[in-house]
Every structure is written in C-alpha cells, then in structure tokens.
C-alpha cells in the first residue's frame, strides 16, 4: 500500500497522460464507430441484396476474429496500402473503430427492428419520405432500445483500448508498462491502473443511465 502511494506520487503524470490517451482514443473510436456502425446497419437493412451481403460478411468477420488479431492486421496491413505515412497510433485507432463499428451496427439494427412495424406503416401512410420515416419516427423510438446496449459497448470500448498497449500506443495500459519497466513494481502499478479504469467506467455507466432516464420521460 505504501509502495503504491509512493509510486502514484512519483509517476502520477505518467498515469494521467495514459488516462488522457485512453480517453481520447475511446472518444474517437466511439464517435467514428457509431458513424460507421450506422452506415453498416443501413447497408444491412436496405432492400439491395448485394449490399446486405457485404455488410453481413463485414460484421461476421469482425465479430468472429479476436480484436488483437485485427489490431495486428491493421498495424501491418494499413501502412502498406495507404499512399501516405501512418503512425502506429493511427493504425490502431482505425482498427479499433472498424472493430467497434461491427458491434455497434448490430446494436443499432436490433434496436430499429424492435420498433413496432405499425409505426413504419403509419409513417408511410401519411406520406412521409423514407428519410423522414427514419429520422422522425423510427430512430427516435429505436434510440431507447439502442442506448442500454450501446452503454455496454462504450464500456467494452474503453477496456478494449488497453490492447493498444501491445503496440506501445500512448494509453493507460501502456503507462503501466512504462512504470513497471522503470520500477519493477508490477502489482502496485496494475492496481493503480485498474482503479483508474474502474472509476472511468463507473462514471461512464452512470452517465448512460442518466441519459436513458431522460429519454424515458416522453413515455
């Protein structure tokens, strides 16, 4: 315990900059993961068969292979196909976005499918355009089904960023590695990092709960 406090005093800036790394990577992955996820969900739901199949294969591959494998794949593969220089961090963030988008697209699809079919029909029957049916009627109702599952996905994403430490990308788990190799105090450093993750995810899950309650006001 004493060693842990000393370790924190001495290396708090390393842990904190790791936390900052985890936070920004998580935020970027979630934002772009959601955008890409919406896009993939739409592809899976269009009436155009080939697009459905492409989206389905995309989701199956990403859900059926380990995230760590995907990170290696992008880390090695992406620089080869891109015409410009890419840092390790950029490759890993792209890989995490792609990986998250597969899960998020499934969450969105399930949430949309759970909206009563009568709502689609009523919206169409009053002559709403397809875009308005989706944006004004279906999505506002689907969001209530989507949010709880998405909250879980947020937490998985935050934890998933720890895999980036394998590639020494600046984030919390990497800061553990840095401190550990400087001090050889593995357990203490791990505990500190673990506590930070715990607090982070606790706050995140509270925020999602709060948002859910807000949305429930209308019904």
């Amino acid at each position: 315990m004493e060693k842990m406090i000393k370790l924190w005093e001495r290396y708090s800036d390393v842990f904190l900059s790791g936390l900052v790394g985890t936070l920004w990577i998580s935020a970027v992955v979630l934002i772009f993961g959601i955008i890409l996820g919406i896009f993939v969900a739409l592809l899976r739901m269009t009436k155009i068969k080939p697009l459905n199949i492409v989206a389905e294969v995309y989701v199956e591959i990403l859900r059926g292979t380990p995230v760590l494998l995907q990170l290696y794949f992008f880390w090695i593969g992406l620089p080869k196909i891109m015409p410009f220089e890419l840092s390790d961090t950029q490759c890993i963030v792209v890989a995490l976005i792609v990986s998250a988008s597969a899960y998020i697209s499934e969450i969105i699809r399930a949430g949309i499918n759970a909206v009563d079919v009568g709502q689609w029909e009523a919206a169409r029957s009053i002559g709403l355009s397809n875009t308005h049916v989706m944006t004004k009627i279906i999505l506002p109702q689907a969001i209530k089904n989507i949010l709880p599952a998405l909250g879980n996905e947020f937490i998985s994403t935050v934890k998933g960023t720890s895999l980036a430490s394998v590639f020494f990308v600046g984030e919390l788990m990497t800061s553990y590695k840095t401190v550990q190799s400087a001090t050889f105090l593995s357990l203490q450093a791990l505990t500190i990092v673990g506590i930070i993750y715990l607090i982070l995810n606790f706050v995140l899950s509270r925020l999602v709960k709060l948002l859910e309650r807000r949305l429930q006001v209308s019904d």
Partner: peptide, 20 residues
C-alpha cells in the same frame, strides 16, 4: 409512392399513433 400516399389517408386497427 410517398406523393401518392399523401393523398390517401389510412387508419389502422392498432392506431399506430407516434408515442414520442
């Protein structure tokens, strides 16, 4: 089709009012 549907009203057995 949307333009056509604007000219035809429909009422369903299960109401299908928009709850939100």
């Amino acid at each position: 089709i949307c333009e056509y549907r604007r000219q035809i009203g429909m009422v369903f057995q299960t109401f299908n009012v928009f709850p939100h």
